[in-house]
Design a protein around this nucleic acid. Structure first.
Lengths: 342, 342
DNA sequence: ATCTTTAACGCAAGCGTTTACGAAAAACTT
DNA sequence: AAGTTTTTCGTAAACGCTTGCGTTAAAGAT
């Protein structure tokens, strides 16, 4: 019926042990035998049985990609994590591992102890994505001993592998862009103060303006949706009506702010420049197309996967946790312009 | 160390066979024993070892979600399949199965014979998503004997389970909407003639206009992007300049057409009504917000998953292939209006 | 030519389940 | 009360692979 290791062994009159060793490039087989085995395996079109191998080695050769979707995020329904996942999948395609996915629901983060993927040993390692994963949960997962890398998240106190984008640097870039266009009265629209990425993005703006000796007006909102962008705009403008440039902490808020400005009679970019963050899919489709910061989601995925594979190979000698931040780049489009003189 | 079936057996002084039977609700254990075993299992926090179980039963308890991304589709970068995947994942969360994902690259569809997920028995069943999967490949997968359901695809000649949206009905709805608004000169912008869903959508428009005794102008394009929407608009308008309503075969093309119309000085919806198809994420964000047909992606995913689970359970008595088409609904937004009189 | 080291290979015992099959006990027959 | 059926449970053999250990053969050292 199906061709097993013992099929090859029988046909070649060798032991299954030798076949196994040959197939896995392990020492203990002469080159001559190895060659014969490999050839026969190809000829018979042999494929290892994943479960059997898994049972013997207590590995699953599966990597879990688990994301925690904020309700907010599904609102601006952005293929952010999908893109990252594609990156992961792409990187894994070269390897022996395959990808299994899951959603970190409230139930799961609530009681990490019965996270089935771990308990049933269905994965060898995992990627945890999303800013809203409780650190308790992360620590619990860490306790399972499996390699983990965080994406779009990080632990403040405990060392762990993580890949994030350069929030601070990106925001700094945006601020520089404003300054280069001659803006001097600049504001930023942000989400909840608690989110780390939010804070870093604000800091980026702050640093640039500090360097230029200019003030920065900041408004917080409790969400990061289009609607909250609109209301944040109102609030910001009543405080500091003379702003000529607004940076938002993400594209949704930027879009909201733009809309609010437009319906208040201000033209973008003639009267007001605005830049977003993330470069979500419809940023270029807006009217005017949104200037924003592109975060290389795909690359973040492949980076995370490569790190994981590295950990899996050197599982013995613990690689020390690295915190990778990938660079973001400014995409100049139609929503920013040189400030009107006067 | 870790708690196994034999741990429970030893503690209770019974055989591992009984424990296994009790845990899987199989006959052959008295209710009394079953209860004791279940209790002890809970107490010890026992979890089955997936690989071992898989080896014994030759099942993996994994379901594959494989999508073929058209280059086109990644262009309008729409979380279409991600949404479907979420639906699948959600439905599977209740079951014993978990989800593993993969991309159907050219390599894979090119040589189905070495699709590792199948060969290494890593999955019990699969969902194949995307209109561009060659039927050769689908047939090859079918040959593996595993349950399969197609999403956003269907085989013309061979019976197979599939879930699609009601392309024809949706288009009919859109046409009705135009008619109700008083439009009489209506056109449609479509992609490649070869695509089945394209054809069905055109047919929907056609049927409604036939019933109303009105003509329908159709333009094809070789892609379905924003750009091709723009050029298709030009083409359509040179042929039939007096159109007051345009239906597009998807939202990207609709947006392209709208943009082209606007830059040609026509106001939407005052001078021209347009409706899309799919209700992609940025449809409501456009200016004006795009009237379109919402296809319930999430639901398509859960339906597909439920079908698969059904097949998995009745694997013995072959369920006859069903072709489910889910209803789409018209979302009226700002891009359509009553035709100007005169 | 003998002794020691090293490499090549086979044997067999796992890995943690499930599941025929058979034995013993319990439940019905008449 | 003895035979028959049914239920309950245990024994042991898979499932397909990996790997520690022992044996034999090859190679090196003296």
């Amino acid at each position: 019926m199906s061709v097993l290791i013992k099929t090859i062994a029988r046909e070649l009159n060798v032991s299954t042990a030798s076949v196994s060793r040959a197939l896995n490039d392990q020492p203990g087989v002469s080159e001559a035998l190895r060659a014969r085995i490999l050839e026969k395996a190809g000829e018979l079109n042999y494929t290892p049985h994943a479960a059997a191998r898994g049972l013997a080695t207590s590995q699953s050769f599966a990597i879990g990609f688990f994301v925690r979707q904020k309700p907010d995020l599904s609102a601006h329904n952005d293929p952010f994590y999908s893109e990252i996942m594609h990156g992961v999948e792409q990187a894994l395609a070269q390897s022996d591992y395959h990808l299994t996915v899951g959603n970190l629901t409230d139930d799961i983060v609530g009681s990490p102890a019965d996270f089935r993927f771990i308990r049933e040993r269905r994965i060898d390692a995992m990627i945890l994505a999303g800013p809203d994963i409780p650190s308790d949960f992360i620590l619990a997962m860490l306790g399972s001993g499996r390699p983990i890398v965080l994406v779009d998240n990080a632990l403040a106190f405990s060392p762990i592998h993580a890949v994030n984008c350069d929030d601070e640097g990106g925001a700094y870039l945006a601020a520089q862009h404003f300054l280069a266009l001659g803006h001097t009265r600049i504001g930023v629209i942000a989400g909840p103060e608690g989110w780390a990425s939010n804070r870093r993005r604000i800091q980026g703006y702050q640093r640039a303006l500090d360097e230029a000796g200019l003030p920065l007006a900041v408004t917080h909102s409790d969400r990061t949706t289009i609607e909250s962008g609109q209301s944040a705009y109102m609030q910001l403008m009543t405080q500091t009506p003379d702003l000529t440039a607004i940076g938002a902490v993400n594209d949704s808020m930027a879009l909201g702010a733009m809309r609010a400005a437009q319906s208040a009679g201000r033209r973008v970019p003639a009267d007001l420049s605005v830049v977003g963050f993330d470069n979500i899919a419809w940023a270029p489709l807006n009217d005017p197309p949104l200037t924003t910061l592109d975060v290389p989601k795909r690359q973040m995925g492949t980076e995370a996967a490569h790190r994981l594979l590295g950990l899996l190979n050197n599982a013995a000698n613990g690689v020390l946790p690295t915190n990778l931040t990938v660079a973001v780049s400014l995409i100049e489009r139609g929503s920013t312009a040189r400030v009107e003189r006067g």
